[in-house]
Amino acid sequence: MATAKLPGYETTFITKIDLSDDGLKTLKDRLIAVIGNFGGEVIYQEDWGKRKFAFPIQKETRGQYTHIVYTGSRGVVAELERNLRLHESNLRFMTVNLAKEFSAEVYTKELGAGTAMKREERGATPEGAIAAPAAAPAASTSTSFNQ
């Protein structure tokens, strides 16, 4: 992580399920390149897999979710979203501001509490449900980037 603290963002985007793994990878690489151009880096990346929508989007009922957490200087979100808009398989995206001065260390420390529930949601081991409250006291010290 660079010495000057950059703002942190997290973007989730949904692609069509007929997009191949290679296609998704090239899209991700492109986004990572964009983030690199703005002096940032990808802190965390997660594949939420294929999920059924609560309502159809562009007549599609299922989609592939990808979630990335990254830093970058001013304009990185606009450029990233422009790239997503240009991509034909992209159905939807959403970016959330995490913090104006983003600390990757704190984020990775808190990650355990944040992702535990997600694993449970994906139907994996129910350990996450037990792990989440245990990790809570440590996480409560800095909820700044949780908005």
């Binding site: 979630h67 959330v96 808190e110 509490a113 944040g114 992702t115 529930m117 997600k118 449970e120 949601e121 989440a132 409250p133 809570a136 996480a139 409560s140 909820t143 949780n146």
Partner: peptide, 13 residues
Amino acid sequence: EDINNISYKNPRF
């Protein structure tokens, strides 16, 4: 309950 569980990443919650 853990307040950090209130996140759009936990739709079921």
